[in-house]
Structures are given as structure tokens and as C-alpha cells.
Simulated scan of single mutants.
Amino acid sequence: MSDPIWTYDRFEPGQSFGEVTIPLDTERTDGWAAIYGPPTGPDAPDGMIVAGMMEAYIRAIQPRPKGNVHASQTLAFTGATVPLGAKVTYHVSVRDKALKKGRNWVTFSLRAEAAGQELMTGEILSIWAA
């Protein structure tokens, strides 16, 4: 039996979706290099950390309804770096939800860390379709 689809009514502020670990492995580095060129040093570019954040967000909340809108996001980097090949752990949770003009708005909080060091925090504001 499959899990029920995530609907607006199921979200609660403070609700955690746990951790998703994304390895900054050769496959991800090669994908990054194909689009942006190879990283210029031994550490992952900030954009690769953000790409991992989006992957973690999508993987953590499944199954999802079709038609969600990624309305905005905010990011705050700590300045800490992580070497290519390391694993980054993302923590995904619900910060807030609100009904506005008949739309389901959900704010998700995300935090990235590697080797016990915080790399970045972020929020994703979504209009949830169901």
C-alpha cells in the first residue's frame, strides 16, 4: 500500500520530515560540470549545496500532488565549506502554513550540514496544490 499524498491539511508547523543525505559524489560533480564547468577547487560550490537542498526537499515530501508552485526561496550561507565527495545532510521541516485568497501556502525550512558543521539554511515558500 502506498503512502497517502501530502495535502495541505496534513502539514503542521514544526513538523519534521527528517534527514536526507546527499553525497557530493562523482555523478553529481559530473552533472554540475556539464552545466557550469568543473569546480575550481576541492570544495563544492554553493550552488551544488543548493541543488542538493532542492533534491532533499523533493525526496523528503513524497508523494506530492501535481501542480504545486515554488513561489520563492531564501538562502543563508554560513561561509563553511564542504569538500567534493563528502556527504551533506539536509533537515526538512514545516515552518508555517496559511490560507490566503483561497490558496494553500506552506513554508518549509531546510538546513544543510556536513561533518557536524552547518553550511546553510533556507526556506521554500510553496503554493500547495491539494
Rank of each mutant, 00 (worst) to 15 (best):
F11H: 02
L119V: 02
A129P: 01
K101N: 14
L125N: 09
H70W: 05
T74P: 03
R28Q: 04
A112Y: 06
T40K: 12
A114P: 01
V92T: 14
I49A: 05
P38T: 12
G41H: 14
G116H: 04
R111D: 09
H91W: 13
A56R: 00
D43F: 15
E118V: 11
F17H: 04
I49N: 05
V88T: 03
Y8D: 09
G102Y: 02
D3C: 10
H91G: 13
I61T: 02
A80Y: 08
M53Y: 12
D3E: 14
G122N: 01
I124Q: 03
A129Q: 03
Y57G: 06
G37E: 10
S16T: 01
A114K: 01
Y8C: 08
D43I: 10
L119D: 00
E123G: 01
T40F: 12
E19V: 04
P42F: 12
P65N: 00
E19H: 08
N68D: 15
T81W: 11
A112G: 03
P4Y: 10
A129N: 03
H91K: 11
D25P: 07
R103H: 07
V20Y: 01
S16Y: 01
P23L: 03
W6H: 10
A112I: 09
G102Q: 00
L99H: 14
M1R: 13
A112R: 06
R59K: 07
P4E: 11
N68I: 05
G67L: 00
T21D: 01
V50A: 13
D43Y: 15
L119E: 00
A33I: 09
I58S: 09
G85D: 08
A98K: 14
A44S: 14
A129F: 05
G102E: 02
I127M: 06
P45D: 14
T107D: 08
G67Y: 00
F17S: 04
V69R: 05
M120V: 03
V50R: 12
S93P: 03
A56Q: 02
I35P: 11
A33M: 10
I61C: 00
G67K: 00
A130S: 13
I22K: 01
F108Q: 00
L84V: 09
I124W: 03
L125Y: 07
D30P: 11
P38H: 12
N104M: 12
T40G: 13
A98T: 15
T78V: 10
A114H: 02
E27Q: 14
Q73F: 09
K101E: 15
F11Q: 01
F11K: 01
T121H: 09
T29R: 07
P45Q: 15
A76H: 13
F77I: 07
Y36H: 11
